[in-house]
Simulated scan of single mutants.
Amino acid sequence: MDSQAKVYVAGHNGLVGGAIVRALKDQGYANLVLRSSKELDLRNQQAVDTFFAQEKPDYVFLAAAKVGGIQANNTYRAEFLYDNLMIEANVIHSAYRHQVQKLLFLGSSCIYPKLCAQPMQEEYLLTGFLEPTNEPYAIAKIAGLKLCENYCRQYGVNFISAMPTNLYGINDNFDLANSHVLPALIRKFHEAKLNQSPTVTVWGTGEPLREFLYVDDLADALIFLMQNYDETEFVNVGTGEEVSIKELALTIQVVVGYSGDLVFDTSKPDGTPRKLLDVSRLTKSGWRAKTSLKEGIEKTYAWYLENMDSIRK
């Protein structure tokens, strides 16, 4: 990827897109094309095609998506399916029509079956039933990676896909109703500390195992893949390490400095019991994550403290 190439980052205001923009700028890429969702509705096919015709980007990072945690996925099921299908289909098709040199589509590890063998290898896709609470989102992401795969096969384009594990970091969503578990717990512990609350409630049993990747590590991996990976098969992106939700909560408790007790609300859903990616395909290509979970949580909490008045809640 030439440093003067025109690079379009779809979803640059989000958690992942923002990290990609930071990483690109740090690596000397200055010719970036950015549009907010208000400026360009990626669900609108004509608007997307007009944008590509006018801007003619050389490279595309497709990080735009409608995202959320268990509650949001389970509540807005139709929106999560429709919006994500439209976004990816419009961007991928317009990238093909207007001869983008390379596109990277960003998926999610929720594409794997609920009871998938662990660690999850790329070959395990579509070998079992999906987790019901996020099935619409997972189906949309599977459709996106299959679009990339089959545009490559039929048209000879260079469209690749990366499937990251659970992400967190700078510019995360800390809304207690719609966020993912890690930023939600950061906010819960911080507010409990301020209010001197005796307990913090954590959804579920605390037993599910999860893998967490600091978002700036993901951005580094995506640029690495854009520069070094040209296969039609998608590639997992993660740390290859997992912790229980209880261990995660205890780590966040230490970082925030909250001295109360944890209460696990077992009436709330746990979601998938375990989600660990097999990242051997990526490590064989030459990339590994650099940020430990505690270090990443410390960076995220520091950012949260500095941006509390302006962050998405």
Rank of each mutant, 00 (worst) to 15 (best):
V100G: 00
G128Q: 00
I223F: 09
L15P: 06
L126K: 14
T272V: 10
L276K: 13
N134D: 12
K56H: 10
E241Q: 15
K25R: 13
L62D: 06
Y59C: 05
S36N: 03
E242P: 00
R153H: 10
L194A: 11
E207M: 08
G204H: 09
D58H: 14
K38R: 13
L282Y: 07
T272H: 02
A5E: 04
D2G: 12
K284Q: 15
E131V: 02
V181E: 08
K146H: 04
L125G: 00
P113W: 10
Q118I: 11
G144K: 02
T75I: 08
L182I: 12
C152I: 04
P208G: 08
G144D: 01
A47F: 03
I92S: 11
L225C: 14
P57N: 12
S3D: 02
G238P: 13
A192I: 09
V48K: 00
S94T: 08
Q196I: 05
I245R: 10
Y155F: 15
Y304P: 10
S36K: 07
N236E: 01
L222G: 09
Y59P: 01
I142H: 01
G156P: 09
Y137F: 14
N44V: 12
V67M: 10
K6D: 09
D83A: 15
G296Q: 03
Y301H: 07
A19G: 05
F159S: 11
W303E: 13
L167T: 07
W287P: 05
A177I: 02
N228H: 14
L218H: 10
L209M: 14
G18A: 05
R77W: 07
F129L: 14
I20S: 04
L34A: 08
C148M: 01
M163F: 10
T300F: 05
V256P: 02
A143Y: 01
D49G: 06
R22D: 15
L248I: 11
P273Y: 11
G156N: 09
L24M: 02
R35Q: 13
E295L: 04
A177V: 03
L125H: 00
A10L: 05
G238C: 07
Q27C: 04
A249Y: 08
F212P: 04
E191V: 13
L218F: 13
G296S: 03
S108N: 13
L209D: 01
K193R: 14
S310M: 03
D26E: 14
E233P: 00
S109I: 07
G17C: 04
Y8A: 12
G18E: 10
A30T: 12
K313N: 06
V255A: 07
N195K: 15
